[in-house]
Amino acid sequence: MAKRCLAIIPAFNEAGAVGDVIRAIQRERPDVDVAVIDDGSRDATAKVAREAGAIVLQLPFNLGIGGAVQTGYKYAWDNGYDIAIQVDADGQHPPSEMSKVIDPVASGEADMVIGTRFREEGGFKSSAVRRIGIAMFAWLVSTIIREKVTDTTSGFRAVNRKGIALFESDYPQDYPEVETQALAHKHGLRLMEVPVQMEERQAGESSIKLWGSFYYVVKVTLALVIGLFRKPIPLPEEGGH
């Protein structure tokens, strides 16, 4: 039997871009179901997503990226999906690259695959400050999990049923991308990076603004270091939470 795959798209005021992203996924991978988590948007995000044919989970207020994405993992868990892939609503993750991220999970080669933007030429140019931050966390996470990690901020990632179970139960709330890699490693998931092309952002704002950078660095570092001393949590069994 074919594996059931869910694309999780967290969206906050992305009415301008989310429709195209949904349609592109349906075109590239018609076998993949699309769930948009509308994180308390003021604009027409939910309406646009419904009209494009996506499953829409509309949160009653803004939970932030972590809470929104976890809503998607809970939906994937409750509805028996074998694979979940996160795709940004702003169009920076090209659906034409989805298969590269899904395939190693589908074949059982890895439990979690992260689409990274640095292992291939020509895809993405980011600011110097961002590059330094990304490099610092890449080093910290690589040290913690004793495996080479190049891009800890990429939200373009896929997990299998085990990863869905983990993220359904525990998902970092504020700036989850960095911490989830350490969390997944702690729970014995086999990680893999694959190079993908990424687009410049189409619309909306990045979830990390410059003034928040300092708080971001302190908070994530604290979480990573304390995470080292935490025990793994028991994962839910089928039918449980």
Binding site: Q173, K219, L222, I226, F229, R230
Partner: peptide
């Protein structure tokens, strides 16, 4: 404070001011 965070009794977000 650090122990409370480790045991997941206190979120990092609310621990920062105490730290």
């Amino acid at each position: 404070v650090l122990e409370l965070v480790r045991r997941r009794r206190l979120r990092e977000k609310y621990a920062l001011l105490w730290i």
